[in-house]
Computed example of a mutant assay.
Amino acid sequence: MLPAEHRLTDAATFRVATRRGRRCSTRELSLHLVEGGPAGDRPVRVGFVVSKAVGGSVVRNRVRRRLRHVLRAHLDELSQGQVVVVRAFPAAAVASSAELDAAVTHCLRRCTAA
């Protein structure tokens, strides 16, 4: 579970991250990364978008839990103030945790290198 200070719940920030942030996609997910302001201002915040196309509520919640677990391990790689939004695709429902971790790692490297 992500600590409360790392959860993204603000709809406006979701919108900004998905429209203006750097994006990288794989078969399983799309990751949007945007700077959220001055570095010392806020901690890294992470939000998830898992639509009904991924599956029923049980499947969507399982995918969300697995993605939260994967992103929690990557929080120390991100700079203070960054906002990350992960959008899961239907392939995420059948992907293993290792595949999700590889997809997140790949996307974070591409977005932070740009």
Rank of each mutant, 00 (worst) to 15 (best):
S79F: 07
R45T: 11
L31W: 00
V63P: 04
R20S: 01
P38E: 14
V85D: 01
S25R: 15
A12S: 06
L67S: 00
R110Q: 15
R15H: 04
V46E: 04
V50M: 07
T105G: 15
A53L: 13
R20A: 03
L8E: 03
G40T: 02
V104H: 10
S79A: 13
V84I: 05
V16H: 12
T105I: 06
L67I: 03
A102Y: 07
E77T: 05
E28R: 05
C107R: 05
D10W: 02
E99Y: 01
G36Q: 08
D41C: 11
G40D: 06
Q80W: 12
S97M: 01
P43D: 05
A17P: 00
V16A: 10
V86C: 08
A114K: 11
F14A: 06
T105R: 15
F89V: 10
T18P: 12
L71W: 08
S79K: 09
S25T: 13
A114C: 14
A93C: 10
M1I: 02
G21Y: 01
G21H: 07
R72V: 07
R64C: 13
L8G: 01
F89Q: 14
E28S: 05
T18I: 09
G40C: 07
A113W: 00
A53D: 15
R65T: 10
V50H: 13
R64T: 05
V44Q: 04
R20T: 10
A102D: 09
P3D: 09
V70W: 11
R68F: 12
R27W: 11
D41Y: 11
R110Y: 06
R27A: 14
V85Y: 02
S57C: 15
G81D: 12
V70S: 08
P38V: 09
C24N: 07
R45I: 08
H106G: 04
V50A: 03
E35T: 11
T105F: 14
P43S: 14
L33T: 09
A98N: 03
R27M: 12
C24S: 12
G21D: 01
R22H: 02
T13R: 14
C111G: 04
P43H: 12
Q82Y: 00
R22Y: 00
V58G: 02
A4N: 10
A11T: 09
M1L: 13
S97E: 12
E5H: 10
D76R: 15
V86T: 05
L71R: 01
V85R: 11
L8S: 01
V49N: 07
R7L: 07
V84D: 03
S96L: 06
